[in-house]
Design a binder for these strands. Structure first.
Lengths: 199, 199
DNA sequence: TCTTATTTACACTTTTTAGTGTAAATAAGA
DNA sequence: TCTTATTTACACTAAAAAGTGTAAATAAGA
């Protein structure tokens, strides 16, 4: 029988340090020595927990994904204006783009994935799909007779295309979006969507 | 008086080699030795032309931007259905996403820019704005009474948001888009846009 | 208090690559 | 043919970072 003590304290400290190191200086320039130092651990301990930098990176991504699974269900409400409800969906994306830490993390992650395709492959296995619940919402609204949509999956893509470009990709690659500009765009996106699909 | 001979042959060979090396293996893993070899030049000559790897990268971007300035004007035509004309604008984006070389180049460039913010800053100075001519087209169509648009700049953003997300950002980060899927989306984007802004 | 799982200190190897110095070779063009 | 601008060969330096081996120190928990 082998005694096991609790290693999770150090392990978490290392992951936490790695998260910040990767965000601050990117995957390549964040050395294992630096991460060890920030985690107040010896480099040897880092390697005892994670056999390579890539394994550590995967753990970091895992950690991030875990944290991001806060459910954000937006149920269909028959007695609330469609516009207001769609605004909430758009807000989801705006909200992410406003979260500096999250954006920095994702920017870093994309950079790594572009630069290191092998790591990207590993990460993609763990990265689930993006079920925002919009399609379900559209189904409900359509069933309720307030929207006319043949293909709710397609309509969902139209809406997310607009929002993602302005509220995610652009800020990701070109820096944060002005708040009032975001508001203007959000309004116009929702109006455009409703012009197409509402009764 | 100092005699000057023509160095451009070697210089171009080096840039050409660098373009392909950067695309193939990324900025970091494309060594100057490798680039020199592919350019059939000595490493010393590479450094005689470009004092550092960053300077070389800038020249490569410059080269790419230069090539990409093939004008793609789509003039407003009073006697052609709006849908057909908007389709052409959408095609511009689809066209880029289909160009494997261009996409690989841009993927690489973004990767570098995310990973090396200092290089990004330099590049951004040379990277002009994106005047697609859509806004001018919308102005004309509005003046002609076939569209009702208060803010054509905003409307232009709505259209490009939809197209960019599906035909640029997603393929850039997640690989090429299925052709029939692209067609479906294009149709829906144009229909949505017209539902909002046409008479 | 003891046992020993875990962590640390630290010296080490290996690999990779940017960038330089220089003398000799090459070749453009007068 | 001659001059010399350009290129080459190649041996360097310097730096950075991944990953390893090991003996000693530390501390959890029975």
């Amino acid at each position: 029988m082998v005694k096991q003590r609790d290693k999770s304290k150090k392990r978490n400290a290392i992951i936490e340090a790695a998260v910040h190191a990767f965000i601050e200086m990117g995957f390549d320039r964040a050395s294992m020595d630096y991460i060890a130092e920030k985690a107040e651990a010896s480099k040897r301990t880092v390697y005892n927990h994670f056999e390579s930098k890539e394994v550590l990176f995967n753990a970091v991504i895992q950690h991030f994904v875990q944290q991001s699974i806060e459910e954000k269900q937006i149920p269909y409400q028959a007695n609330v204006p469609l516009e207001a409800q769609l605004n909430k969906f758009a807000e989801l994306k705006v909200g992410i783009s406003t979260n500096q830490l999250k954006m920095n993390f994702m920017r870093m992650a994309f950079g790594v994935m572009i630069t290191h395709p092998n790591i990207a492959a590993q990460v993609m296995e763990n990265a689930g799909k993006n079920d925002d619940g919009l399609q379900a919402w559209l189904d409900d609204a359509t069933a309720d007779g307030r929207l006319i949509i043949e293909d709710t999956a397609l309509a969902s893509e139209v809406f997310w295309s607009m929002c993602s470009s302005a509220f995610f990709w652009m800020p990701m690659l070109q820096g944060e979006l002005d708040a009032s500009k975001a508001e203007t765009l959000k309004k116009e996106f929702v109006a455009t969507f409703l012009a197409r699909y509402s009764k």
